[in-house]
Design a protein around this nucleic acid. Structure first.
Lengths: 200, 200, 200, 200
DNA sequence: CCCTAAACGAGACGGTACGTCCGGTCTTAAT
DNA sequence: ATTAAGACCGGACGTACCGTCTCGTTTAGGG
């Protein structure tokens, strides 16, 4: 059927996707993430909150995890642009402070926890999660590489490790919840990473 | 299942706790953690695999997460003793290599993922997880403090942050699964942490 | 489906009803009734089989039951004309044999079952069914009244009951399916009804 | 598994079926059948009304149709015992009046309609329905055979046909709903059947 | 001879019910 | 008293249809 040439030639004549429903679903997911703990995040709950049939969710997303990730990945990419302050310290501070602030947001924290949770026994949720984190790591790496080109990090600095340390701290605290992600912590982390990266 | 020879050999013990059942439950949990993905880790699954009634699990553990944590925490504490090589570099290498090796074990990795997963919407699982990680962080902190006392780290080094960076990398890679926890990575991490901690 | 040659040959007819689509829908319904059990009879199924949009069905019929009844009612009225052999026995035999033969047809039997099924929780389907059966009962009653006028039945014979007995046997066997509607059964039924009706 | 000899040898030690739940489910089904039309009969509805988990229904009955049939078949067998008045006319009147009265009961009528409905596209519901009707036909046949042995029906009377006519009228009127099942109708039907059966 | 309104195919939409799965509790009979 | 077995309530899951609602296309017929 997908090989049907006539099918490919005919663009799409059916009713189009309802953008309002899409937004309502993502917004409902965000709301519920923020309330996470109070009420569990359920496909039925999302559908009800969004005023939408369950099938409309399953039509466009393979699982509620895809919805949740979709709902927050807009945030992350919009709210944490790759900064350009001229110095590595400035860029890194901006980026990591922004990331920490984002991860403190109840919805985002809820989503990260939910994704990590599901990725364990759901291959597909794992793929989604890896895709999402990969994009975030690439952004941070971009910041570091710029600093490296400017000579603010040693030429042989282990950027992959630095990136994993930064996001490691973030995820570890979000998931385990033993301590908060303060802005002061972000600053100390920045100092530490630069110290590591500039040591020959 | 009914053909399991070990099963036939484990008789009821009447009114005192049946140690064989305890072991069977923990072993079943470990087995299932190792097969994670293939068969789901369910209370019923654990009970069936162990040849045990569900109530026997709930009688001795408050939830399946307690079982899982119980099943692996023996490992962690037995396999990663606090080393004493005389140098911070040696101790840290031993500890982090050991931790990484432990976390690569399928059962342990499965348990970490499962715990992180559940801690999100289950207060009790969260407490268990925080208790477990707290003990591990204390062990690593002990190693660092010893080095600090020996002058191998600056007196004002941010040990809390160093600990979170180390475990952050471990958990981040285990949970997201974008890259493996190699021994080489452990060594590079050790170098980074010492560089960071010894910078004034 | 897209390879259906008839489909390509059925162009839009603009603002008047497309007779080809009407036929395609009725034919699809008949086909599906004949295959009942294999594929479920669904509005979507009918639409797909007919190569038609669902709305085209709902535009012209109030429900799928109306479609189904429309699809088979042609049969019944065409195939079982009110006979005129000169004797009650002859007429009744012709009529009941014809009715039984019709009800043995897979499509018709499927439609009767489907209608009876739906009439239970769908007022509108019930009305359609009563309208359909009313017309069939009137036809049989016509046959009986003619015989009564000729003196072949007692003047006070309970024609309503005789009609219900005849159609009762037919529907009972179709719906319950414990025994087939053979021509021999039709003959025995005719004999019984005449015996009953001619007894003073 | 069912061939496992050890399994057969071990009697059954688990918790036993909760009779109260069984009754609550059947009663809820009956109540809902009586209200049929107002609210549709749903597994969830039955479960909720009975204060029972859905799984408890599916554990013991393969479908809601089995529940419904179970709920009413007690009635039929209890309320319409095979009568023994000494004459065929008396027995038949008692039996058919009883059957008509039973079929007028809202719950029973609802169940018959529901079963007929489902039997169309559900093989298993069809088998249940055939089993149920078979038992009822056997009871009526017993009444007729007794009359035949007493010489009240011709030795070659077509008992199968007489039975199908009686139940045919009942089902036809219940399902199509064009006319009620009055006691007067029962009496006229009895007269007609005896007239048929006693004609040589 | 264009322009519009109806009919069409496609298919997304809000709902309702389905049958399955799991968590955590409770009950039985056996040890 | 503890065990294996397993029934119980509750609640989320993902699927299947229903009947409605747009879309963009096609064409007959009125201006």
């Amino acid at each position: 059927m997908s090989a049907d040439p006539e099918r490919a030639a005919r663009p799409h004549t059916g009713r189009q996707r309802n953008e309002a429903a899409r937004r309502a679903i993502l917004d409902a997911a965000l709301e519920l993430l923020m309330e996470a703990g109070r009420s569990p995040i359920t496909v039925d709950t999302i559908a009800e909150r969004a005023g939408v049939g369950k099938q409309t969710i399953y039509r466009w997303w393979p699982s509620k995890y895809a919805v949740v990730l979709d709902a927050i990945s807009g945030h992350a990419e919009r709210d944490i642009p790759i900064p350009d302050t001229g110095t590595l310290h400035g860029d890194l501070t901006a980026f990591i402070r922004g990331s920490f602030r984002g991860a403190c947001d109840a919805a985002t924290a809820g989503a990260l926890r939910l994704m990590a949770a599901e990725a364990q026994h759901n291959t597909q949720a794992g793929d989604l999660l890896r895709g999402f984190t990969e994009r975030r790591r690439a952004a941070l790496r971009e910041v570091l590489e710029r600093g490296q080109r400017r000579g603010e990090l040693a030429p042989d600095a282990d950027l992959v490790l630095l990136v994993d340390q930064a996001y490691g701290v973030l995820w570890y605290r979000v998931l385990v919840g033993h301590a908060p992600l303060t802005q002061a912590l972000a600053d100390r982390l920045v100092r530490g990473l630069i110290a590591q990266g500039s040591t020959p």
